[in-house]
Simulated assay, not measured.
Amino acid sequence: MEKQLSYSMAILGLLLALGMSGAAFILGVQAKKAVSAQQSVSVKGLAEKAVQADNAEWTVTVSVSAENFAQALANLRQERPGLDMFLVKHGLDKTSWQEGAEAVTPHMIDVPLANGGTRSEQRGYDASQSIVVTTKDLIKVTAANKDILSVQATGKPFTAGAPLYLVSNLEDVKMSLIGAATENARNRAKEFVKHDGVNVGVMRSASQGAFYILPPGGTSDGDDYGGTYDKTTINKTAKVVVTIVYNIEQ
């Protein structure tokens, strides 16, 4: 009886030992997986490429003054045909125009006071009208913008802002750069860990940072989550930044 009891106790001890060993092994594997899952590397990916504006917006304005409202409006309507002729002469026909409304406003000046300071007084009226030219013919807009000075030199009351050179397919450009920047980020992650005997695993998280449209040779200094859009040049450089976190596998 005692032998049978001793034998049973021995079997029970063996089973308990095996159970504890198995549990320890399972817990060890789970712990290793948990540690491995917590290891990660965060990298920035960059990509850029040359792009070219394919659209332009150019605002030109005629502005005049007169002593009274009616005369200011009459002067505006008298000068406006000259601006139309200038645009048509440069190949910018009316199909590309968006005409603003005629505007007549009081002309205010600051008059010095005897005891110092100034007082605002009305001296006649100002009248103006703007035209926004939108076209894909960038050469014609550029030429007209250069020639506006010679027209102003003749006394014509025309002014113009610098043309805005725009890229119409910005979303397509951005998407192509995101793919390239993501690949760049994985390559960077591999470089970071290649000496540690580990591998870059699946992507844990990703976020797009700044999207830049820069002039040739321009820099992208500044907030990674901001971005800039250069509209002063025809030839540009598009650049995107992404931040990606990868799991590290043992």
Rank of each mutant, 00 (worst) to 15 (best):
S150N: 14
T233Y: 06
N187F: 12
I244Q: 00
V198K: 10
T95G: 12
D126T: 10
A24K: 02
M20T: 15
G91A: 10
W58H: 06
L214P: 06
L76W: 06
D223G: 03
A50E: 15
I248A: 01
L113I: 12
M175T: 15
T95V: 13
S42H: 08
P215E: 14
S168F: 04
S176K: 12
H90L: 06
A53V: 03
L92H: 04
A56L: 04
T154C: 01
Y246C: 01
E249F: 00
P81M: 13
F25L: 15
G100R: 06
A103H: 02
S207T: 12
T142A: 14
L87K: 08
S63I: 09
N145D: 12
K239E: 06
A206E: 11
N247I: 03
I26P: 00
R80E: 13
L149P: 00
P163Y: 04
K156T: 09
K190F: 05
L18F: 13
V200Y: 02
F69Y: 15
L177R: 02
A53I: 03
A37I: 01
G82H: 10
T243C: 00
S176G: 15
I178Y: 09
M203R: 07
V64H: 02
K140H: 08
L92S: 05
V151F: 08
T105L: 11
T59R: 09
T159M: 07
D137S: 11
A37F: 00
H90N: 15
F158G: 08
S220T: 06
G155C: 05
G197L: 08
P112W: 08
L73F: 07
A206L: 09
S42D: 11
S220I: 02
T95S: 14
S8M: 14
K231T: 15
A37S: 12
I213H: 00
I109R: 11
Q4F: 10
L214G: 04
H90M: 10
S96L: 12
A56I: 02
Q250G: 07
N235E: 15
E121A: 10
A181W: 01
S176A: 12
L164Q: 12
